[in-house]
Amino acid sequence: MTFKKSLITCSILGLGFALTACSTTSTETANQTSSTIEITEQNYAHAETARNYRNWVALGANQHITHMRNLPPRGKDAPTVQMNDDTLYSVAVVEAVDGMVTFEIPESDVYMAVQVVNEGGHGEHYVVGEGSYTAAIETDYAFLIYRTGTEKGLEAARTAQDKIETDTLKFGTYEVQDYDYQEVEAWTSTLTAETQGQVFAYTFPRTSKEVTDLHQWNLENANGWGGSSPEVNVANLYTNSVMLDAEQCQTTTFEEPESKYFTSVTPYDESRYLIAGANHISSNDWVTNGDGTVTVSFNCGSNAINNIDTNGQDFSFTVRYYGVSQKVMNGEIAPEKSVIKS
């Protein structure tokens, strides 16, 4: 594998500025409803994808790779719903060249993956580890999500981010799509609310041709846009629990998932955003029980095993299996289904 020696450095825009820019765009678009594209069941996934492209374009991601140097902000200050709390993000919005996108993952001593998300919201490709990759994509533009592991701390992750090279990427041509983004957000809120009373599993079909249930696909985009299509020992599987009461101590105990890379459990509020002050629990550092099983506790006190304190905020939790194992794919392990009140 060969790697170019040059390194593109980028100025990092603050998230406060980014959200100001997003809000301004949303207001201007809303005032032009006569010329905007109506949101329907058929185009919602494209519109929600355009909303996420737009939020990251406000951070400069269509001009250069945009690194998020810290864990994502809590609440709706985040540019994307249900963001990971266990990796740093780097994002590029780029044009495909002859239907292909070529990108590189540098050598590093932490987890690093790239997901290629097309304009329909499909993560067509998910690749892990050092190499140069060329991937076909079914739309004109791609949203590249670099996920960099924090298992060795933030500084190690930032060092790995700095090694990312973007010589092969075509920047500067993406234009924000003409949707009414207030309407898109209203659709997203409605679809998210529909799933709050149930355990929810994502399938994330890789292409438009693989969508067999349009409503399910829309629910997946509303609850966790940008998630990967599960692939044993490569890509990730995600599941959501039901909404849980923060006033009660609750636990879930499950067999070690044996993800190839790691597994994490992260709480979210009812709108699927991270909760202020709440941490995630990861297999990189969780404590196992004497029989090898894993117990994660929620709001059970600082002495409880693998405790997550949601600070009085009702929540659901998402389990992410990075490099999902076959037994998890087979449904043999399901922490979201085994929650008990203590």
Results as ranks from 00 to 15, higher is better:
P205W: 13
G301N: 05
Y111C: 06
L154G: 06
F317P: 05
E38L: 12
S264C: 09
E151V: 02
M243H: 01
Y89C: 01
E194W: 15
Q32I: 01
G123P: 06
F17H: 05
D245V: 07
K337F: 11
T310N: 06
F171N: 09
N279F: 04
V328A: 04
W217S: 14
A45T: 10
A157T: 06
K76T: 12
N236P: 00
G131V: 00
L144Q: 03
S228L: 03
V116I: 03
M329Q: 12
G121F: 08
H122F: 13
E332H: 10
N306W: 00
T139C: 08
E104D: 08
T20Q: 11
I333G: 09
W286R: 05
T239F: 06
Y174T: 06
F103H: 01
Q42K: 07
T139E: 07
E210A: 02
G121M: 05
I275T: 11
S26K: 13
Y146I: 00
S325D: 04
S259P: 02
G312T: 03
I340P: 02
N299W: 00
M1L: 07
L274N: 11
T173I: 13
F204P: 01
G331T: 10
T263D: 12
G149A: 06
L219V: 07
T24D: 11
L154W: 02
K260Y: 01
H125M: 13
Y261D: 02
R158Y: 03
S6Y: 13
R51K: 13
E210W: 00
R74G: 01
A156Y: 02
S264Y: 09
D98V: 04
D85K: 06
R320C: 01
T159V: 04
